[in-house]
Design a protein around this nucleic acid. Structure first.
Lengths: 240, 240
DNA sequence: CTTACTTCCTAACGTGACGTGAGGTTCAAG
DNA sequence: CTTGAACCTCACGTCACGTTAGGAAGTAAG
């Protein structure tokens, strides 16, 4: 009957001694024997059990789940498998989506102007909005293409115009100016052409934007936009 | 100049108050002002910064990385992006592989005999070995097909035979019996036919197995197999 | 002004799966 | 008998917060 000490088990399995201590602590694997001086002594069965633990861990189960799987005979592995598959599929979807976004950002940054922090945040913001579920693939591509075609001076100018328009709308809205007022209509015309420049198709963009703002109506949005203000702008644009 | 309290910020951003406390603690976002009684008071700029933090977090960066990205102007976002892409790609690969294995296990269990724990571990073990890099896709499919075609009685029998053979080889090896001894040659013949049953093509299987045992030569393997014993068996089989 | 309710504060522990010491004991070899 | 390796038990650190606990401040109504 061969007996192993903790360091040998560690070598055989590729785990660390600390890990084996941990498994002992949480009751996942108590060695069969303990020497009178407290040294852990493992036997064949322990090693086998440990291999099973390692396999299950590699499948992504938590130590708690591994424990239940191995000790509770009534525990249903099939159910756990389904659960795990669902978890992992969802996870994979998120990771793939994330990768796409990172890739977009990377390629926009890479062939763009020198890396300055504020521009980086702009790109990140743009990608995150255009990649949200409210915008179609085509629209996202459009926006990105237009963005890349501009140099930093043009982008700065565009952002300024955007900011001006929004604060213009906001002050009129707070003054109570009606949407059909010439001042507001002028803002609306500039607004529409500004967005048309940026995204190509205003109507489609506005549908996407509306859905976006509906989803985020209670949140503060970039440039000081919010749901209420967007409604004001929308009505004004319809009056043109 | 609008000022927000911590609860309002939480609502606007969808974070919790505790999270904002945390960001304050670690110096990621100190609110612009603090009331004389210690209440946190945020201004527009803080909100903007917070939005940036949220975006970067969604891209999978740690709070530490976010902090560096936002405060250290010399910090290179491109480099970090590359790093992050590499990380995520690796991660995705692992997850996809894991999903495949889980799916294999699931379908084997699902259409198999009633779920008993020891059989579950067998399946897991089998899938994990056959899916390791040493085995070809085709070989893995072979092994799995053969496995599903057996009922639990046959599987038990097979495992027993396997165990008997291995312990037979081991005792001969430890006695110092040479590989060309008739007793060993008989074991070798049974060994070969046993594996041929299980995997179809013995030569291909043995190449895979050899590569597998080379990789795990210093580890204890299922059924009490190890690298040294495998070499003994291999030589014996060649003598047939 | 009191009461009651909400929001805010700090402080401290918990999560998961260990890593990383500190400080001391035991084992195996020379 | 002495060394050095391996072992032991605490116990704190990781990461991004969640979750009480206990109390102070702010706000609205009576």
């Amino acid at each position: 009957m061969k007996i192993w000490r903790v360091g040998e088990i560690a070598q055989l399995t590729g785990l660390t001694v600390r890990t084996l201590h941990h498994y002992d602590e949480i009751g996942l694997l108590h060695p069969a024997h303990t020497s009178e001086k407290g040294h852990r002594l493992y036997v064949e069965d322990d090693l086998q059990r440990l291999h099973h633990i390692i396999l299950l861990k590699q499948l992504g189960f938590s130590l708690e789940e591994v424990k239940r799987l191995m000790t509770d005979p009534a525990f249903n592995p099939l159910h756990l498998l389904e659960h795990q598959l669902a978890r992992i599929n969802e996870h994979i979807q998120m990771q793939l989506d994330l990768r796409d976004r990172l890739n977009d950002i990377y390629s926009l940054m890479h062939r763009g102007q020198p890396v300055d922090p504020s521009r980086f945040m702009e790109v990140v913001q743009m990608i995150n909005i255009s990649r949200s579920k409210h915008f179609s693939r085509e629209m996202a591509k459009n926006i990105q293409r237009n963005y890349t075609s501009m140099n930093s001076e043009q982008i700065r100018e565009k952002n300024e115009e955007f900011r001006r328009l929004i604060s213009g709308f906001r002050s009129e809205m707070e003054k109570g100016t009606p949407e059909h007022d010439p001042v507001v209509l002028d803002l609306a015309r500039r607004w529409k052409s500004c967005l048309q420049d940026a995204a190509g198709d205003y109507d489609q963009l506005s549908r996407s934007a509306e859905s976006y703002y509906r989803d985020h109506s209670d949140q503060a949005l970039p440039f000081g936009m919010d749901g209420e203000l967007y409604q004001f702008i929308r009505k004004a644009v319809l009056k043109i």
